[in-house]
């Protein structure tokens, strides 16, 4: 198992109290697995991604453990986490475009970054990797401003996978891109795994149709908790959690026209995570809700590799 997360809780400190952004999630990502992490804004998917790299000042690790390749990650110890960052876990941020220092040439920046991790830059390997994502080695002698948004994105992708991390987290990397570049970036991610440059991957997105294209499995979050995790095909064709079911059926596809089939959204809105209600958090919006939902359902395996947090799923 590459990644094992057990009952992880991360809260945000705000002036009005603690927001329970990540409230007890347990899951694992296998070696070689590309897991899509889907959810709406406020579902906790970004908090989960950030927690595995760096807790920002407002985030507090309240409980739970994270194990990567058998070693426990010290989430709340920023210095000790340096051991893991970049080498074992790496992140492609959402705004890669601004992740590059504008005053440094790309090559020098990469060198400095490797230096700070005590690694020796391997120029030939770097050039080979750039070629892999369709960039020529000339970009190393250019400034970030001379590259297009898509090129910068690819540079960041190469840099963050340079040390062959065990886990790569891609945080909404395609959301700001056009349809055609989305496809290029997504297939590049797939290529990283297929060539063994990264062992497993977590692709955070709000776009289920996109992540379905490259992921082996998809995990859906709702209001700080896990709703469902299943192989990508199963999640899209036969979801078991009522939230996933409604979410998937609310997605318009090319070919679907509202005159033929009027899709419906999910009525209501997610609960506030300042003082979330007890029990299942989807209860208020759920058409299947019944008495037992006042109790939090476990995230239980209903079929091999298919986990659902719903009393009605079994």
């Amino acid at each position: 198992m590459a990644l094992n997360v057990t009952d992880l809780r991360v809260y945000y400190r705000t002036l009005r109290g603690e927001v329970k952004a990540l409230d007890g999630v347990t899951f694992s990502v296998a070696d070689g697995e590309i897991m899509g992490l889907a959810g709406e804004s406020g579902s906790g998917k970004s908090t989960l991604a950030k927690s595995l790299i760096r807790l920002d000042g407002r985030m507090r690790h309240v409980g739970g453990t994270v194990e990567l390749d058998g070693a426990a990650m010290p989430l709340s110890d920023d210095d000790a986490m340096d051991e893991f960052r970049f080498r074992k876990v790496s992140l492609i941020p959402q705004y890669s475009m601004s992740a590059l220092n504008p005053t440094r040439k790309i090559g020098r920046m990469v060198g400095e970054l490797l230096d700070s991790r005590g690694e020796r830059p391997d120029r030939a390997e770097l050039e080979r990797r750039l070629e892999l994502v369709g960039l020529s080695k000339d970009v190393l002698d250019r400034y970030p401003i001379e590259l297009s948004g898509g090129m910068k994105q690819r540079v960041v992708m190469v840099v963050s996978t340079l040390l062959n991390p065990s886990l790569l987290i891609a945080d909404e990397v395609t959301s700001a891109l056009d349809v055609s570049s989305q496809k290029a970036v997504a297939t590049t991610l797939l290529g990283f795994r297929d060539r063994g440059l990264v062992t497993s991957m977590m692709v955070v997105t709000h776009d289920i149709s996109l992540v379905y294209q490259i992921a082996d499995s998809i995990m859906v979050m709702y209001a700080g908790r896990l709703a469902e995790k299943a192989p990508a095909d199963v999640l899209v064709t036969a979801p078991r959690h009522p939230y996933t079911q409604q979410l998937v059926s609310a997605l318009p596809e090319v070919g679907v026209r509202y005159e033929d089939r009027r899709l419906a959204g999910i009525p209501g809105s997610p609960p506030s995570l300042l003082k979330p209600p007890g029990g299942c958090r989807f209860r208020d919006r759920c058409p299947l809700a019944f008495d037992q939902c006042a109790e939090q359902p476990p995230f239980a395996e209903v079929a091999p590799g298919h986990l659902v947090a719903c009393w009605k799923a079994e």
Binding site: E40, Q246, G265
Partner: peptide, 14 residues
């Protein structure tokens, strides 16, 4: 907008 609400806004246009 989030996926669960965007379709409703789209239906409004219809």
């Amino acid at each position: 907008l989030d996926a669960s609400t965007r379709i409703d806004v789209l239906n409004l246009l219809a």
